[in-house]
Nucleic acid binder design. Structure first.
Length: 648
DNA sequence: ATAGGGTTAG
């Protein structure tokens, strides 16, 4: 499996918020406000490039197609070189399929490609993960009697590595090493380094870098950038910064790509100060933030829930003549979706259409996800149909999103229909697709169907990962078969799978619901020993377990421990604590404690300011705060009267 | 006129 998907899986499984940015004023935005005036936009080049091209510079696809058609009308026909020039410009605009279709048009008109054309087309097929087609174009070299060059072979190696077809890539590589006419160059090594990075094998990538050091083909900026970015994606910031210093020492000047990778890396781990330092450093080196830099900042703010701050960064980029693009709008939409503010997300969606931005599968998937998470599945389905009408093909992620939406609404049959549909449409279900469906089946207590699905996974030789086992264990707990769940849990180690926090928490909840609180407590203690400390969710689950099993004292001890660790009680836990207060057998201070941690001290004092904050919380949480404030202002203990207040 | 690195969704 490619590392790309592993990284995605890893990031989506961490559900614990980092809490790096709690204040309303993100330091980053304050910094940008203060210093952005000093960030000049791309310094405009005063020297006009010499216009050596007969073909005009094309900035959009419509224009390119028009010029292409005009060229086809000319007599005599322009040389293949002119057509290649158009194709190259379209490649730069990433319209790979268009390039391929224009190439076929040329063929139909009897216009013969040259070796350059073939390289261009091989590159397009490589980019589209169509290595079968790339190889058949490669065959044309021999039909036409051309000699493949180092670019041809590099392009093929690159394509195979992007598709994780290492053996084929290696085959072409040894052909270069053993064959006489073209030797591996820095592009070849660059492709190999990238190949290792995609697999997540940074060590091998660095080893190759060292080999280049000692060889004839010295590493360049791109090779360094590739590895630095890969390290940053794995949040190995220290290693990335070491390579950064190394390249500077060797006189290889970092560029905007280097800085964007590093800034993204430090943003990912919430190191805002470091991001700001890097922004300063790049500007003092005359490297100015570009659209990607801004998009990284916008996206990071959105992921922290700070969409308004993200919006103000967008305003800054507009002031600096950098127009927001599809990615910018997608990040904003996702930001609003994360907050459940679908009206705002829709506004951004409409705005990007009115601004003429390209709407792509990302945009639709983000909106569909937003609607599904708010349980507005009808709206999601409407967008899903709309995207097909727009000629966009939903991918595995789109289907997974919608299938999950259906499952969470209990619409298992609808989910299964989508599952068949996606396969009929040629989109391959991945491990996550199965995880989503399995989870849906388990939560709806359809274990026999779940087992059937598992069998299907086995037939397809898919690995059963920790997520799949967690779902199954939870499923067994839900149907009350705690013993089987425990057996499966204990089997994990023999399968060399280390339980994670989620897995432990699921098992602990199973034990609590099965009135096996001492087993739960044993597991809870085991977490510390196994270097997998409980998180806020684990605490809430076990505390609720103890309260529900009338072990109030143990619960109280854990509440204090939880608060000491900086974790907050959630709405359900608060409800139970309120229940305890009602029975007058608990110190009211406990509720204050739990709520203070949830909302911060100021909240108790400014109820009116809270209302917005509380809207992201549920009705119960709001009631509890009202209750608490009532309690506080009257300085008295709970009565049945107070409980009525909660139900308001 | 052709090849390599950085941004968004489950």
């Amino acid at each position: 499996m490619l590392r790309k998907s592993l990284r995605t899986a890893a990031s989506s499984s961490s559900y614990c918020s980092r809490g790096g940015m709690s204040s309303l004023h993100s330091p980053l935005v304050v910094f940008l406000c203060n210093h952005l005036a000093s960030f000049h936009s791309q310094p405009s080049n005063p020297i006009e490039p010499r216009n050596t091209q007969i073909v005009p510079k094309l900035t959009n696809i419509e224009n390119a197609l028009k010029v292409f058609d005009e060229m086809l009308q000319r007599r005599p026909l322009p040389s293949i070189i002119r057509f290649n020039q158009i194709l190259c410009q379209l490649v730069k605009l990433k319209h790979y399929s268009q390039v391929i279709s224009l190439y076929h048009q040329l063929g139909l008109l009897g216009i013969v490609p040259n070796d350059f054309s073939l390289n261009i087309i091989i590159n397009c097929h490589s980019r589209l993960n169509q290595m079968g087609f790339a190889l058949s174009v490669f065959g044309k070299f021999f039909i036409y009697g051309f000699e493949p060059d180092v670019i041809t072979l590099n392009t093929l190696i690159n394509g195979f590595l992007l598709e994780d077809r290492v053996a084929e890539a290696a085959g072409f590589f040894s052909r270069m090493v053993e064959g006489s006419n073209c030797k591996p160059d820095v592009f070849t090594f660059g492709a190999l380094v990238k190949g290792f990075c995609i697999k997540g094998n940074n060590t091998a990538a660095i080893r190759l870098l060292r080999k280049m050091d000692g060889g004839a083909c010295k590493p360049n900026l791109v090779v360094y950038n590739t590895i630095i970015d890969s390290l940053c994606k794995d949040t190995l910031i220290v290693g990335a910064q070491e390579l950064f210093s190394e390249m500077v020492t060797r006189g290889i000047a970092p560029d905007i790509v280097t800085y964007n990778s590093l800034i993204h890396g430090v943003c990912r781990v919430g190191k805002w100060k470091e991001a700001i330092r890097l922004l300063n450093e790049m500007v003092s080196n005359d490297i100015f933030p570009d659209i990607l830099t801004f998009n990284i900042l916008v996206d990071t703010l959105c992921k922290e829930g700070l969409v308004l701050q993200a919006e103000s960064v967008v305003q800054m980029m507009i002031q600096r003549d950098i127009e927001p693009d599809t990615v910018t709008y997608s990040s904003l939409m996702d930001g609003y979706c994360l907050r459940g503010e679908m009206d705002e997300a829709k506004k951004v969606f409409d705005k990007m259409i009115s601004k003429g931005s390209r709407v792509d599968v990302f945009c639709y998937s983000i909106m569909i996800n937003g609607y599904c998470k708010r349980k507005m599945v009808d709206e999601a389905v409407m967008l899903f149909q709309e995207m097909s009408q727009m000629g966009l093909v939903p991918n595995t992620i789109t289907y997974n999103t919608l299938i999950d939406g259906f499952c969470k609404m209990g619409k298992i049959q609808g989910a299964q229909k989508l599952f068949s549909q996606m396969q009929a449409c040629g989109q391959h279900p991945d491990v996550q697709t199965y995880a989503i469906l399995l989870d849906g089946l388990c939560k709806n207590q359809q274990l026999s169907l779940a087992i059937e699905l598992l069998r299907e996974m086995k037939e397809r030789k898919m690995e059963l990962n920790i997520v799949i086992y967690s779902i199954l264990i939870e499923g067994l707990c839900i149907v009350g078969n705690t013993a089987a769940a425990r057996d499966l849990f204990r089997c994990l180690l023999s399968k060399r799978l280390q339980p994670d926090v989620k897995m432990y928490t699921i098992m602990i909840r199973g034990f609590c619901n099965g009135v096996l609180t001492s087993e739960a407590e044993k597991l809870f203690k085991e977490m510390e020993d196994k270097d997998c400390p409980p998180d806020a969710c684990t605490y809430n689950i076990i505390i609720r377990g103890f309260i529900n099993n009338n072990e109030t004292l143990r619960a109280m001890g854990l509440i204090q421990q939880m608060v000491k660790r900086g974790f907050a009680a959630d709405a359900s836990t608060v409800e139970l604590i309120v229940g305890l207060l009602c029975k007058d057998n608990v110190d009211p201070a406990l509720l204050t404690l739990a709520l203070t941690v949830s909302y911060g001290d100021s909240i108790l004092l400014h109820l009116s300011e809270l209302v917005e904050e509380v809207s992201v919380f549920d009705w119960l949480g709001f009631s509890c705060i009202r209750y608490l404030v009532t309690l506080e202002s009257n300085s008295r203990v709970t009565t049945d009267e107070d409980m009525k207040c909660i139900r308001l």
